[in-house]
Amino acid sequence: MSDMPPAPTSADGPEPSVPVSDTATNSATNPATDTVTDSSTGQGSEQGTGRYLYAVCRRLPPGALQGVHGLSGEPLELVEHGDLVAVVSTVPLASFGEDALRRNLEDLSWLESVVRGHDDVVQAVAAHGPVAPMRLATICFDDDAVRARLRQWAVDLGYVLDRVTGSAEWSVKLLELAPQAEALEEAEAPASGAEYLRRRKAAVEQRAASSASAADVADDIHATLACRAKASRQLPPQDPRLSGLSGTMVLNAAYLVPDVDAAEFTAALDELRGRYPSLLIDARGPWPPYSFAMLGQP
């Protein structure tokens, strides 16, 4: 790859971006290779390149992200301001410009590759300390613009990093398999349309009743786990075709768990599985604290 990332062109940027690995010879600080020196070339058009922000963290140890690549295999680079570090890489605006994004975001396979690439970088950063993950497709024209965001949001970003320091996110889902409703569906064919609808009604009511009790169980499980976490959030249920989990998702929650309490948290999960053997408790972690990294939170 001979693509050169864009370099800061103005002299007021206090710190140039630095390549992450020693082997990255195409340093972003080389103005001779700049392809987007004039910001107007990239503005609103689908030409040129942008700088994709994955996450903000505090200073990383040298070589921390060695071997990790950004989207499309581009090298990761760091843009610094004060003690804040933005992890960025170059993306082509042909794919990440405004019009292109509008199209691409509706393409689930494109979206999947980008979200996985984004998450790979965030996970790698998280391995070295607190991380504030950016939402998908946060893109600036150049490093100066990235630095300006760090300057503008320095206080809030610092707060987010403080808040998640020493903690990780755990995802917990509770699934009910609802065998009764299925058994009813397997019965012999209805004699009439009205009979069919009566059966449907009975099945739905049965499902509603079991969901009510499942909701109580979900409340109990959520309360048990939430009191072992620094923070918790309940999320909407997921599409079974995306999650690979069958059954009715009656709880989908995220917990911010201090690392020192992680063993206690997983022990609580085991205890809950023993208490509710008929339900599937799907727990995954640790995640970077996506669900708990928000600006302006008290």
Binding site: L111, V115, H118, P133, A137
Partner: peptide, 23 residues
């Protein structure tokens, strides 16, 4: 990560800072 988990987080959570590309 399953796709639902990862979409849920990367697409719907995380820090929102307006970049130059208006998504």
């Amino acid at each position: 990560a399953n796709l639902a988990d990862i979409l849920e987080r990367v697409l719907d959570k995380g820090i929102i800072i307006a970049g130059d590309i208006r998504v």
